[in-house]
Design a protein around this nucleic acid. Structure first.
Lengths: 173, 173
DNA sequence: TGTTACATGTAATAAGTTACATGATTGA
DNA sequence: TCAATCATGTAACTTATTACATGTAACA
């Protein structure tokens, strides 16, 4: 079977509970988006494709006159998800414009270069606040909770790291 | 001027020293690729484009009968780079398949889910070894050194975090 | 009555990777 | 002589974002 990241987002979410494409987008935007985003332009076509393959099943459940399709995982879909979950290849790609700037920051006057480190810390202070807003609902399944904790801990680490490095760079020069 | 990430990679590298497209790819693969990758398919067309815009200047410097073009930064190019460097918007995108698996790992038996945390730690042990291989050449400019240190510290943090969480998850259950 | 949220979808575009083609040089 | 490295480039493909079109429902 052909698969891409969106495949696993869809199957994974449907393993939590049945939902519509619209709801998937909302859940993603409050959870996985920090390490795996998904747009309508990926979600809806992928739902169709997976339905065609028999990995998900869609049912029409209109709300009043507003059409709505709710999807659930088939046995085949659950099987495909489990196979992927057991895979151990760790693929990571990052595009971090702030680190790229830092890498080239020697071209800048020292004080302005330090601003970049401060800006990075500020960014993560903002991200931390956002994550704290999402808040650990105590009834999250354990591994959902784990990834939320990851986000919080990672932001705190970034803030500490930037702060320490800024101090260091200031002392060195 | 129209710009994308590759624009800044090219201009930034040429601010360090003049080099060919081939050399850029090598440098990227040993440095920025951890937070900003670039392929030949991006580098070569972008060099042409920036040459057309007058931000970089290419000179033919064949080695024997092997053709070779070496690029350098023009004043305009340097100006464009500095303008971007002073920008403070922090754009970050991550695609982390390992965290995505972790997020959905409640669908797995507990022991297999723990394997995912271990696999993640192992991945970062490998990445750390790789980075230690690149090694801090003491003559790196300060901010180049900073990003290398970032890579090392980040890997160590990941390893510690995964190890701690695995222990925690084991105790909880 | 107007704004926001619900709901589905696509077309255009941008961004990025992979694999290939071509050929010279170096060193075992 | 063979493999690896140097060197430039592109075509095909995959992936992802953005912006739009369409219309219902809830609520202030």
């Amino acid at each position: 079977m052909e698969a891409n990241g969106t495949t696993w987002v869809v199957l994974g979410l449907l393993a939590l509970r049945r939902m519509s494409g619209y709801e998937m987008k909302q859940v993603v935007d409050h959870s996985t988006r920090f390490f795996w985003a998904a747009s309508y332009g990926q979600l809806y076509p992928e739902l169709r494709r997976l339905e065609g393959l028999g990995l998900v099943a869609g049912e029409s459940e209109p709300r009043g006159a507003r059409p709505r399709r709710v999807f659930s995982l088939t046995e085949e879909g659950r099987h495909a998800l489990h196979t992927w979950l057991r895979g151990s290849r760790v693929r990571m790609e990052t595009r971090d414009e702030s680190l790229l700037r830092l890498f080239f920051a020697d071209a800048l006057p020292h004080e302005e270069a330090l601003d970049l480190v401060r800006a990075r810390a500020d960014h993560f202070r903002g991200a931390l606040a956002q994550l704290e807003g999402i808040a650990s609902e105590a009834d999250d399944p354990p591994f959902v909770g784990l990834t939320l904790r990851y986000g919080l801990d990672y932001c705190r680490w970034e803030i500490d790291w930037c702060t320490a490095q800024e101090r260091q760079l200031r002392e060195d020069r």
